[in-house]
Design a protein around this nucleic acid. Structure first.
Length: 496
RNA sequence: GGCGCGUUCGUCUAGGGGUUUAGGACGCCGGCCUCUCACGCCGGUAACACGGGUUCGAAUCCCGUACGCGCUGCCA
């Protein structure tokens, strides 16, 4: 806003480790990271583990893993909010000292009753300030009697304004607020206090967080003012919704970053997709590299309204990244999947590196997920044992079809050159000699050697599998002729 | 209920008073390519929530209504 002397930009991502890293959280982290990188500043991480029962180390670890996977590296040491409770308490007492806050002896039960009462009378509930005006003697007596108390912040009449980085000017009258608690009776800090104190101590300059914090901002601004601390810039980014326009949750399917990872999404793709969800570079580009996004990123480009997470578009984008990625870079992912799926042992995967890379090259353009390189492409590694029913019905219905396949197999036995070109020439010539279309042979052969009806180009597949494998599979398939024919007849009856 | 924020194709968005018959992307539909499926290419479908104002002129500015979301805790 004001032209200040160039000051180092410092942003932060402050998740509470009560769940896995959600795509919403990941995007908030991403925007903070982008802003920091763009301005050559620092991106920090703070774990808000003050809610001890709900926080776990396991979840904290998952959050780290998710951020690292996405390439959102943070600077400086991670701050654990739980370890800062003492500081928070000191600040709360400092505010009491300065008469900007006061002890409140009301019990949760009493407050609850008042809230209920207000609701019954259809009144807006706000803390009535009972303890704000307690005579000093009463306070002293209560203290000495060891009565538990929380600490409340004094809200004075006035108007709070700030220039939101995304929304522009926002104004709230403090009459909408009440004296809110900043320190629990057990001495632990409430969110607002902890956040303000930590952000100040971490010297955060830009607070980029979810839209759901807009209504919290006035309280926090009041705290900054009371403490005499400079205000950071606030920017509230829209939420991510599910297809039903409700806040994205588990019932919408995958919502955690690691689920997308397991599904076969490339981190680059999720990064790109998330960046474009609620932010636009201003032009028509969709596929943008990390560096391009960093260069183009600005708060002004962030949209004001919530965005529905469109998995179809993510899939498309992932496909784009896979298509454009060199096989050598794809190989490690595929290797891991092969091992994970039990297709082969690690040593074998390493030994067959070249072969695996060739399968990747063939599949690359028809794949959307990394897992597609393995699932549905098993025929590159094992002889098929089952055959697509629809394919059988379609391509091997007649005795003539079988005869053709038998004759072709026989002819193939004499072929030594199993290069893609030679195979194609041979098959087409064979088809022509028999007076049939090449397709009449191609489809049955594909089915026989792969078991499926969808594969890369047949000649490429045959060349890669090699003479021995192709002939072995053809012979094995023909050997099952009787059984398969019976099966086909059955199928045809069922379907007629 | 109160307060706040928001509302452009089904979805993500561009556009910020005349350049707009509102642009792009995903999806969907059709075509080309072709041995299947993809890829690629070509074409199509489809939107300014509603009502008032301001203005010569409004998707763009203002007000209201509706709808959605958020907050309204000794949760974060």
């Amino acid at each position: 806003m004001e032209n200040k002397i160039a000051e180092e930009v410092r942003t932060r991502f402050a998740p509470s480790p009560t769940g896995y890293l959600h795509v919403g959280g990941a995007r908030t982290a991403l925007f903070n990271w982008l802003f920091a990188r763009k301005h050559k500043g620092k991106f920090l991480l703070r774990i808000e583990d003050t809610d001890r029962e709900r926080s776990s180390e396991e979840m904290t670890r998952k959050i780290f893993e998710g951020l690292i996977w996405l390439g959102l590296d943070w600077d400086e040491d991670i701050v654990y909010q739980g370890k800062r409770a003492k500081t928070h308490r000191q600040i709360a007492y400092r505010l009491v000292q300065e008469e900007k806050a006061y002890p409140c002896f009301c019990t949760p039960e009493e407050l609850d009753a008042k809230r209920q009462q207000a609701r019954k009378e259809k009144r807006v509930y706000k803390y009535d300030g009972t303890c704000r005006h307690l005579p000093p003697e009463t306070v002293k007596a209560n203290m000495e009697a060891g009565k538990p108390y929380a600490i409340r912040f004094k809200v004075e009449p006035g108007v709070i304004r700030w220039e939101d980085g995304v929304h522009g000017p926002i104004e709230v009258n403090t009459r909408e607020l009440d004296d809110f608690i900043i320190l629990r009776s057990d001495g632990s800090p409430i969110y607002h206090l902890a956040v303000v104190v930590d952000d100040h101590d971490m010297r955060i300059t830009h607070i980029i967080r979810g839209d759901d914090h807009i209504s919290n901002t006035p309280k926090q601004i009041l705290l900054y003012q009371a403490l005499g601390w400079p205000l950071p810039r606030f920017a509230h980014v829209p939420l991510i919704l599910g297809p039903d326009k409700k806040r994205l949750s588990k019932r919408h399917g995958a919502t955690a970053v690691d689920e997308y990872q397991k599904m076969g999404i490339l981190p680059e793709a999720l990064f790109n997709y998330l960046a474009l969800l609620g932010w636009s570079p201003g032009d028509d580009r969709e596929i943008l590299s990390r560096d391009e996004i960093v260069a183009l990123f600005s708060l002004e480009g962030i949209s004001k309204n919530n965005a529905v997470f469109d998995e179809k578009k993510l899939l498309w984008m992932n496909g784009q990244y896979i298509h454009n990625m060199p096989v050598e870079k794809l190989w490690p992912y595929v290797q891991e999947l092969l091992i994970e799926r039990g297709v082969m042992e690690k040593t074998e995967a390493v030994e067959r590196r070249h072969y695996i890379m060739q399968t990747i090259a063939l599949l690359k353009t028809r794949v959307k997920l990394l897992t597609d390189f393995v699932d549905g492409a098993r025929y590159f590694y094992e002889d098929p044992t089952t055959f697509d029913a629809k394919g059988l019905r379609k391509h091997l219905k007649t005795p003539e079809a079988w005869q053709l396949l038998e004759d072709y197999t026989q002819a193939l036995e004499t072929v030594q050159d199993f290069s893609e070109e030679a195979l194609e020439t041979h098959l087409r010539q064979f088809a022509e000699a028999r007076g049939v279309s090449a397709a009449k042979i191609i489809h049955p052969v594909r089915l026989a050697i792969t078991g499926v009806i969808v594969t890369p180009g047949l000649f490429e597949v045959m060349a890669l599998l090699g003479r021995e494998t192709v002939l072995r599979r053809l012979r094995a398939f023909l050997a099952q002729k009787e059984t398969l024919q019976e099966y086909i007849q059955q199928q045809l009856q069922v379907n007629s």
